[in-house]
Design a protein around this nucleic acid. Structure first.
Length: 878
RNA sequence: GGGAGCUUAGCUCAGUUGGUUUAGAGCAUCUGCCUUACAAGCAGAGGGUCAUAGGUUCGACUCCUAUAGCUCCCACCA
C-alpha cells in the first residue's frame, strides 16, 4: 500500500468529525457510569473564534476526551451567551450603517433586528469549534436567552426579590454614556490617564456679592463646577478656619454655596480645599449625604450638559471642559494648571469614560452570598488552579459591594417588575401574577395599567446559572424542587476551564448561585488558563482584532498541529505569547507519527521467525518505559499539568519510540520481522495512539482505523485508555547502559574522545553481556571487548565495526579522577548525615505523611548504595 | 496607595514541602549527513556566575531579609 510521506490533515479531519457525529459518539445521557461533565464558558453569541477560545476549548476537549477514554460518562455542554451590552452595541452599529437610529425603533422592532442578527451570526463560533475537533454534545447546545433559560433568570430574580436580597435604589452607578447604560463595578477598567489639575479661584461671598478674597480649589473636572453644592475643608486645617460660616460663589454662574468641614479632605493634597459635586462624584455624593447637600445633576445620559448647568448647555462633557477652562481663564478664575495622572474609569465594553451618575437601579445584596462563596474556595471544595488566585479571590469576596443588576438596554431578560400608575411595584414571573398581587391591593386596577420595568438584567445574571440551567432550566429559583434526571446526574460538574479575567464576573457568581439553589459547589476544579497575547504582549481579543485567525491556522497546519502547538506552551495561569513556530512543531509531530505508522505497516511478517536477543531486549524495555510514562502522564493530569503531560507523550513517542525502539526492532533491508515483535510493535503503537488521542484526535483516529481492521462505528474515542502496568526497572536501566554505549561508540567514530569517567561507567563497570546484542545492532558493531584494568599507559576499549577492529585509548588521569570521585563521596556523606538527621527526628517521622518518610528512607539507602559504588570505583583506580 | 505574582540558555518555560540536576526541556542556532518511515528528517555541538546583595544550613535555583526591574489585581484622594 502506498501512503504519502506527508500527513495531510485535509483528508482526515472533516471525514472523522462527520463520522463521530454520524455515530453519535459525542452524545451523552445519564447511565450507571461515573459522570464527568464540563460546561463550556459560553462565548458571545455573535463572537468569532480567537486564540483565547482555542486555548480554552482545546484544554476542555483534552479533558473530556480523556475522561471518555477512562470509561466515564463524559458530557461537555456547549452554548453561547447573549452578551447584552456587546451584542446590543453591534446591532446598534449595524442599524446605523443602514441609517437607522436605535431611538427611532420601538423595543419590539429593535429586538426583532437583534434576533435576526443572532440567527445570522449566532452559532458561527460553535461551528468553528468543530473544526478544532471539540467533542461537545451538540444536542445539548444552549443559549442564555433561549426561552427556558430566560425563564430561569426571571424565576431567580423573583426568588431573590422575595427573599429580600434584591432591592431598587438610587445609587451612584458607573454610567456608560456611549452604551447609555449603567455597568457594574467589575466592568469598569481603571486606566491611568494624563489629565490636568485646574486650580480655580472661588471668591468669598458677602450678601451674594463677590469680595476680593478667594480660595483656590484644585479639580480635574472644571465642567462640573456648576453642580457644586459646597466647598469642603478638613476640620483640623487651621489654614482655612477663617472660612468657617462663610459662603462662596461658584465661578461664572455666581451661585452661593456653603463651606463645610469633613475628615474626608486630605490637607496636603491639592490646596486642601475640595469642591463637593454630589451628582458627579461618588465620594462627593457620600459627603453630600452626610451634610444633607442638594444634588444637582447637570450631565445627561449621553454625556452632554443639560439646562441645569445654565452655561454650556448641550455641549459634550469633554468639549465643555475645554470651553469652560477658556471661560474661567478669561474671567480671572483660573490660577494655574498642572499636568496630572489619574486613574480614570473606562467601560469594559465600549471604552467610554465612565461618568459617575445617580440613578435608580436594581441591586442584589452580596454580603452573605459572597461569604459563602469565599468559604467554598477556602475549604477547598472548589480548587483554583493555580492556587495563587485564591488570594485575589478572597480579597474580592471580602470587599464586594452590592451588585447592580439592571442595564438600560433592550437585549436581555426584561426585569419582571411591574408598576401601577400610582408607582407601586410588584415583582412576579409573569404580568398576570403581578396583576393578581396588584389587584389584591387595588381592586379597580386593570391589567393594561401595569407597566413593566424597561430595563434588562446584566448578562452575568443569566450566566451565573449556567451550570444548573443547561441541565435543568426549571430549577433556578426553586431550591427545594427536585432536580431533573440530567441535573441530578451531571451536576455538580467536574472541571471549569476559563480565563482569570472573569474569575469574579462569572466563576464567583456561579459558586453563589449553585450554593443558593443546589447547596453545592458547581464544580470542583477551576483551571484558569493564561491569557493569550500577541508578540507585543497585548491581550488577543476581538475588540483589538490582533488575533490570528485560528481557522486559517487550522487550514494551514491542521487542527491537531494547532492543538499541540497551544498545549506545549501553556501552563496554568501563565500568559501565553503566541508564536506560529509552536504550531509548526505540532505539524512536524503529526508527520512523525504518520511516518512511524508508515514504517510499521510496511513490515513483512515472518510467522516462523523468533525474535533476536536485541529485539527481545528492546520490547522488554519499551513495555516498561511505556508503563512508566503512563503513570507520569496520569500524575500530570491529576495536577492539571497539561503541557507537561503533552510533553511527556511527545518525547515518549519521538525520542523513545521512534528514535530507539523502532530502530532497535527494524528489520534489515529486505528482511522480515518476527510475528511476536510485530504484534508487540502494533500493540505499542496502538497504546501510543490512545495516549495521544485526547491531544490529537484526528490523526490518531485515522491511524487507529488503519492499524487493524475495524468495524463501522468503532472509534478510538471509545477505547479504554491504557493503564499503567508493571515497570521492570532493570530493563529500563539495562537499556540506558546500552544507549550510553551506543552514543559513545558513535562519538568515538566521529573521532571524539569520551571522558574517562564515561569509559569507566559504560565499558568497564557495567555488565555489557546483557545489552551487548542491542549495542551491536544499533551501533552496527560486531564485537566489544572491555579493558579491565587501568593504568596510565594502556587503557581503552576494543570494538569491531564490520571487519575493522578499533581500539580507542582512554587517557585516564588517575589523580584527577580520584579527586573527582572523592569529592562526590564527600557530597554523599554530607547528604547522608542530613537525611539521617531528619529520620532521627521523632516529630518528622510521626507527623509527615508515610510516603514522605518512605522517600527519605529510600534516599538513605540509595545514597548508601551509591557510596558503595563510588568506593569500589575508587579502589579500582588505585 | 494596597495586595499578589514573576525574574533560570537567543525565545517560551520546567525545576513537586532544601540533597541523586557540579542546572533541565522544547524551539531557535551551529556542524556533519538526501542512511529505502520521516530533510516537516537523522547524528552531534555550543549556549546559563538560576535578577542583585546579604543571611540560615553540612549543603540553596529552592528558605529568610533587603534592593532593582516587570506583570496582574484591587483602590474614592479632588
Amino acid at each position: 500500500m502506498d501512503i504519502p510521506a506527508k500527513y495531510d490533515p485535509s483528508l482526515t479531519e472533516d471525514k472523522w468529525y462527520s463520522y463521530w457525529l454520524e455515530h453519535k459518539i459525542f452524545h451523552s445521557e445519564p447511565d450507571e457510569r461515573e459522570p464527568y461533565s464540563i460546561v463550556i464558558p459560553p462565548p458571545n453569541v455573535t463572537g468569532v473564534l480567537h486564540m483565547g477560545h482555542m486555548m480554552n476549548n482545546t484544554i476542555q476537549d483534552v479533558l473530556i476526551r480523556r475522561a471518555r477514554m477512562l470509561g466515564k460518562n463524559a458530557c461537555w455542554v456547549p452554548g453561547t451567551d447573549h452578551a447584552s451590552i456587546a451584542t446590543e452595541a453591534k446591532v446598534v452599529a449595524r442599524l446605523k450603517e443602514k441609517g437607522i437610529e436605535k431611538s427611532s425603533l420601538t423595543r419590539e422592532q429593535f429586538l426583532e433586528e437583534a434576533w435576526k442578527w443572532k440567527e445570522e451570526h449566532g452559532g458561527i463560533i460553535l461551528k468553528q469549534l468543530r473544526k478544532l475537533g471539540a467533542s461537545c454534545d451538540w444536542d445539548r447546545t444552549r443559549f442564555t436567552m433561549e426561552p427556558a433559560l430566560s425563564k430561569a433568570v426571571i424565576n431567580t430574580f423573583v426568588y431573590f426579590y422575595n427573599k429580600g436580597l434584591i432591592y431598587r435604589g438610587v445609587r451612584m452607578v458607573n454610567w456608560d454614556p456611549v452604551g447609555k447604560t449603567a455597568v457594574s463595578d467589575e466592568e469598569v477598567i481603571h486606566k491611568d490617564t494624563k489629565s490636568k489639575l485646574y486650580y480655580l479661584r472661588y471668591f468669598i461671598s458677602e450678601g451674594g456679592k463677590a469680595t476680593d478674597k478667594y480660595i483656590v480649589i484644585a479639580t480635574t473636572r472644571p465642567e462640573t463646577i456648576m453642580a457644586d453644592a459646597a466647598v469642603c475643608i478638613n476640620p483640623n486645617d487651621e489654614r482655612y478656619h477663617w472660612l468657617r460660616g462663610k459662603k462662596i460663589l461658584i465661578p461664572l454662574i455666581n451661585k452661593e454655596i456653603p463651606i463645610i468641614e469633613d475628615d474626608y479632605v486630605t490637607m496636603d493634597f491639592g490646596t486642601g480645599c475640595l469642591k463637593v459635586t454630589p451628582a458627579h462624584d461618588i465620594n462627593d455624593y457620600e459627603i453630600g449625604l452626610r451634610h444633607k447637600l442638594p444634588v444637582l445633576d447637570i450631565i445627561d445620559d449621553d454625556g452632554c450638559l443639560n439646562e441645569k448647568a445654565q452655561i454650556l448647555v448641550g455641549q459634550e462633557r469633554f468639549q465643555a471642559r475645554k470651553n469652560i477652562v477658556k471661560m474661567l481663564e478669561d474671567a480671572g478664575n483660573l490660577e494655574k494648571t498642572e499636568d496630572y495622572n489619574s486613574p480614570v474609569g473606562h467601560s469594559e465594553r465600549t471604552d467610554a469614560v465612565i461618568e459617575p451618575k445617580l440613578s435608580l437601579q436594581w441591586f442584589l445584596k452580596m454580603e452573605d452570598l459572597a461569604a459563602k462563596a469565599l468559604k467554598s474556595v477556602e475549604d477547598g471544595k472548589v480548587r483554583l488552579i493555580p492556587d495563587r488566585f485564591t488570594n485575589t479571590y478572597r480579597h474580592w469576596m471580602e470587599t464586594v459591594r452590592d451588585w447592580c443588576i439592571s442595564r438600560q438596554l433592550w437585549w436581555g431578560q426584561q426585569i419582571p417588575a411591574y408598576y401601577t400608575p400610582d408607582g407601586d411595584c410588584f415583582v412576579a414571573a409573569t404580568k398576570e401574577e403581578a396583576f393578581a398581587q396588584a389587584a389584591a391591593k387595588n381592586p379597580d386596577l386593570k391589567i393594561e395599567d401595569l407597566r413593566q420595568d424597561e430595563d434588562v438584567l446584566d448578562t452575568w445574571f443569566s450566566s451565573w446559572l449556567w451550570p444548573i440551567s443547561v441541565f435543568d432550566p426549571e430549577k433556578p429559583g426553586f431550591p427545594d424542587r427536585q432536580p431533573n434526571r440530567e441535573l441530578a446526574y451531571y451536576f455538580p460538574t467536574n472541571d471549569l476551564i476559563t480565563a482569570p479575567d472573569i474569575l469574579f464576573f462569572w466563576v464567583a457568581r456561579m459558586i453563589m448561585a449553585a450554593d443558593e439553589f443546589e447547596g453545592k459547589e458547581p464544580f470542583s476544579n477551576v483551571y484558569l488558563t493564561g491569557i493569550v497575547r500577541d508578540k507585543l504582549g497585548r491581550k488577543m481579543s476581538k475588540t483589538l482584532g490582533n488575533s490570528p485567525d485560528p481557522l486559517v491556522l487550522i487550514k494551514q497546519y491542521g487542527a491537531d498541529a494547532v492543538r499541540v502547538g497551544m498545549l506545549l506552551c501553556s501552563s496554568a495561569g501563565n500568559d501565553i505569547f503566541f508564536d506560529e513556530s509552536q504550531v509548526e512543531q505540532g505539524r512536524n509531530f503529526c508527520n512523525k507519527i504518520w511516518n512511524a505508522f508508515r514504517l510499521i505497516q510496511g513490515w513483512e511478517v515472518d510467522p516462523s521467525a523468533t525474535p533476536s536477543q536485541a529485539e527481545a531486549k528492546a520490547v522488554e524495555w519499551f513495555e516498561s518505559l511505556l508503563n512508566k510514562s503512563i503513570a507520569t502522564i496520569d500524575d500530570h493530569f491529576s495536577k492539571f499539568r497539561i503541557s507537561d503531560a503533552t510533553m511527556t507523550i511527545y518525547k515518549l513517542f519521538w525520542d523513545e519510540f521512534c528514535a530507539w525502539y523502532l530502530e532497535a526492532v527494524k528489520p534489515a533491508f529486505g528482511e522480515k520481522i518476527s510475528k511476536t515483535v510485530f504484534d508487540k510493535s502494533v500493540q505499542f503503537f496502538d497504546s501510543l495512539l490512545k495516549l495521544l488521542h485526547p491531544f490529537m484526535p484526528f490523526i490518531t483516529e485515522e491511524l487507529w482505523q488503519n492499524l487493524s481492521p475495524r468495524k463501522d462505528g468503532e472509534t478510538i474515542m471509545r477505547q479504554m485508555m491504557p493503564k499503567a502496568g508493571d515497570v521492570n526497572e532493570k530493563a529500563i536501566a539495562d537499556f540506558e547502559i546500552a544507549r550510553g554505549c551506543i552514543i559513545n561508540i558513535r562519538n568515538i567514530r566521529q573521532s571524539k574522545q569520551i571522558s574517562p569517567k564515561q569509559a569507566v561507567e559504560l565499558f568497564v563497570k557495567k555488565p555489557i553481556a546483557e545489552t551487548g546484542a542491542l549495542v551491536s545492532k544499533l551501533a552496527n558493531v560486531s564485537r566489544i571487548e572491555e579493558t579491565e584494568s587501568f593504568d596510565t599507559n594502556q587503557t581503552g576499549v576494543n570494538f569491531m565495526v564490520g571487519t575493522t577492529e578499533f581500539f580507542v585509548p582512554v587517557q585516564v588521569d588517575v589523580e584527577a579522577e580520584k579527586a573527582k570521585i572523592e569529592a562526590e563521596i564527600k557530597r554523599y556523606e554530607g547528604f547522608l548525615t542530613g537525611v539521617r538527621k531528619k529520620l532521627s527526628n521523632e516529630r518528622f517521622v510521626s507527623s509527615a505523611p508515610k510516603a514522605v518518610v518512605d522517600l527519605e528512607r529510600k534516599k538513605e539507602s540509595d545514597a548508601l548504595e551509591k557510596l558503595k559504588a563510588l568506593d569500589e570505583l575508587l579502589q579500582r583506580l588505585k
